[in-house]
Design a protein around this nucleic acid. Structure first.
Lengths: 341, 341
DNA sequence: TGGCAAAAGCTAAACGATTAGCTTTTATGA
DNA sequence: TCATAAAAGCTAATCGTTTAGCTTTTGCCA
């Protein structure tokens, strides 16, 4: 049977109140501190978190909602968040929403039943009212990653998706490219749309009309995406560059290019999105937009813990933290002659 | 403030004992059942799991140790396990070991502090004594996936790695291949070694000597693996087929082949390992060994819950469940003329 | 040395559930 | 209708903490 606070009290001759105070960082007489430390060590005492949670009504636990375990973006974020939270003695329940709003609702119900003190989430929708109803039900603070709801119902951490895409496409334009294809991902997907917007804006600012046939809206679950991408390169007038908006589209693009025997950057230039280990695995080294996941997790954790700490107070205003993405330089862009100013 | 069992008691005029009995599936008078159901619904009652855990000394929580969130094999397994556990009203703490034994120890300490009722794990070592010390410290039952310790200290679920590899290589041999390269992964890694053993056995049984230069021991963390693999194909006498032992080696092999412009199966045949979405993304469709993750998770869950249920009883004997892997047929193997019996 | 404020320690009542052991109600059959 | 066993319900103690409110001890200075 595990040692309890009472055992410590008995072993040291102190009262449970004093032991509790000590365990929670309160001050005790020097000689007692030593006694207590010794007793804790010798009895191998570990606090019973359930008893504590019952009494304090705080579980010191946070939920993290990912679309799917193994989702490379969300997993990495969760991984960073664990580290940050541990420093504050919080622990993390990770759970899956299975990429559906129904799944998200269930997951939040589940987390509420675990009485988490807060929730971090990557959600699929953008309907503020819908989520407000769900969040309000339990009154648990939420921090949302990389998505803006159509009105604020929680704190949010986003990267400047459109801006990063704008920079990426601009880099291609600067290198002299004009026929720039975009693999824009699933329409209606927040980040994909934002990044496409950046593409459009960069093209417009450079005075280059967007050709419809160079815009490929491949879906995340599209098993034929491979074929779709191949089509791009069998066109009479091939694009000279591609901008791809996320990890999945980037990976698929590379595979399609390889299979079609189109070499990068000689025959086509490529600007991808999301690193993970792409920059180490793929040759030539890609130009990539990299999301600073550690920073995002850090900001998210801070927002959430602040919100948890100030529970019950004024909560009218929510914050949005905007983080700059990184551009990783590579060898995947060819300078086209006659380019530049 | 959330409703408690007392509120339900008050609302129904029954005692808390009766309410508790009802909540735990005990029988109550028909008219009371209705009253109780109504009260639970109207007060939006949810049990306080912390209070229950404190009293029963059972958290109805299981820990799942993965090397890294995002690890495709472990994540998929965890995902399946969540589903199975939920059916039994258990929930899952997923945590990372960061691919180190130190990390594993920390994670187990952490899970113990959460008072999980059991642990599922993918571990990196095979030293039974080492793990015995760790497991015994808390007396929490453990189920281990896809690894055998050098003596039994917990229940284990494995697939027949060597057997599956044997079948795969045999398929290549049957198609007439003799120069079969193997990307064997990290030496000392249990599953990789097992699969290599299957390769060796298949070659031996067919009377084909294993050529050392066709055996590539690429490490999981090896950023040059790409180059290593390329070396294989610049040899004077190229292999005609490759057997690759896991997801990572398979992905890397495909990329290297693509870059070197070696077409599958015309120029080289390929038998890979681990599906995930490889079979949907890569063309031509690969021959693959697929691990039946859902079955593995199911068996693991069953073993663990059995062990949890019979806590404190005789525990001298541990079980190992051996599961057959699936062979997915593809178009990545070329029949070499003059093959067969 | 005595007085006093601050620091340290203590007692006891919660938190929300479960459960042993007892009492009341119900159903059954003669 | 009554005796009785089974079913249903109840009381009260308990799990391991925290914490309000009180008491004791300590250290400091006049």
């Amino acid at each position: 049977m595990a040692a309890t606070i009472k055992d410590i009290a008995r072993a040291t001759g102190l009262s449970v109140a004093t032991v509790s105070k000590f365990l929670n960082g309160g001050t005790v007489r020097e000689q007692n501190r030593e006694l207590l430390q010794k007793a804790v060590r010798e009895l191998d005492y570990h606090i019973n978190e359930y008893a504590r949670a019952l009494k304090t009504n705080r579980s010191r636990t946070v939920g993290f909602l990912v679309p799917k375990f193994g989702d490379v973006f969300a997993s990495e974020l969760a991984s960073e968040a664990v580290t940050k939270l541990k420093e504050q003695q919080y622990s993390l329940f990770v759970c899956e929403s299975h990429n559906s709003m129904e799944g998200e609702r269930e997951a939040i119900d589940f987390l509420a039943s675990k009485q988490v003190d807060g929730i971090m989430a990557t959600l699929i929708g953008t309907d503020g009212w819908y989520y407000k109803r769900i969040f309000d039900r339990y009154g648990i603070p939420v921090v949302l990653f990389d998505r803006k709801l159509d009105f604020d119902v929680c704190d949010t951490v986003v990267i400047d998706n459109a801006g990063a895409a704008y920079q990426a496409v601009n880099r291609l334009i600067d290198a002299g490219h004009r026929d720039i294809a975009v693999i824009r991902g699933h329409q209606g997907h927040y980040t994909a749309d934002q990044r496409y917007e950046g593409y459009e804006r960069a093209m417009k600012d450079a005075g280059i009309p967007v050709k419809e046939e160079l815009v490929l809206a491949v879906d995340y679950a599209d098993t034929n995406m491979y074929d779709h991408i191949k089509c791009l390169f069998t066109m009479k007038q091939r694009p000279t560059a591609i901008f791809s908006v996320n990890y999945f589209t980037t990976i698929s693009t590379i595979m399609a290019l390889n299979e079609l025997d189109i070499s990068v950057p000689q025959e086509i230039s490529l600007f991808g999105f999301d690193n993970y280990h792409l920059s180490q695995i793929v040759k030539p080294r890609l130009w990539l937009v990299e999301q600073p996941l550690a920073r995002m997790a850090e900001e998210g954790t801070r927002l959430l813990l602040d919100r948890i700490g100030s529970k019950g107070q004024e909560e009218a205003t929510f914050h949005t933290v905007n983080i700059q993405a990184n551009i990783l330089q590579g060898d995947s862009i060819r300078q086209i002659s006659g380019a530049g100013a």
